[in-house]
Amino acid sequence: MDHRKRVIELSINDEPYVLAVEPQQTLLEVLRDSLSLTGTKEGCGTGECGSCTVLLDGKPVLSCLMLAVECVNLDITTIEGVGSIERMAPIQEALLEKGGVQCGFCTPGMVLATTAMLNRNPKPSEGEIKRSLEGHLCRCTGYNKVIEAVEATIEKISDTHE
C-alpha cells in the first residue's frame, strides 16, 4: 500500500484546513481522526448505514466511501456546521421535540440528509422524505418519530417563509 502522504486543502463548514493525508484515507477517517470532527459517526464503514453522512457541495454522501483526496475543492458540511446548542437548526429542534432521538448515533446522519433534502425542496412529499432517509438505519426509534420530526420541520419552515 502506498502510505506516502499528500498535502491537501479541505473546506469544512466554511473553514479551510491544510493537512497531510494518505491516499487511501477516507473522508470519514480524516474528519474523525485527523480533525477531531467526531460528530460524524461510523456504524459500518462499508456504506450500509448512513451514519457517516456529510454534505459535499450540499449533496449527501457517505464519508466512509469517499477518499479524502477526492474532496478537495468541494464544500464539506458536517454536523458541527449545522447548528449549535444555542442555535439549533429546525430539524435538530424537531428531532428533539418529537422524540426522534434515542441513542443518537444515527442522528447526525439523519440531520444532514434532511438538511440537504429541504434545501433542494422545502416541501417534500412523504415519499421524498422516505427516499431521502432510506439509507439511514435507526435501530432505536422505528422511524415514526423521525418522520414526524421531518414533517414538523417542513411546517415550521413554511410558516417562517410565509
Binding site: T38, G39, E42, V82, M88, G104, P108
Partner: peptide, 15 residues
C-alpha cells in the same frame, strides 16, 4: 442529552 446528540457534540467511546 438531546441537544448534545442532535448537534454531534455527544462523545461516544469512539470519539
Amino acid at each position: 442529552d438531546g441537544p448534545d446528540k442532535v448537534t454531534g457534540r455527544a462523545s461516544y467511546t469512539g470519539d
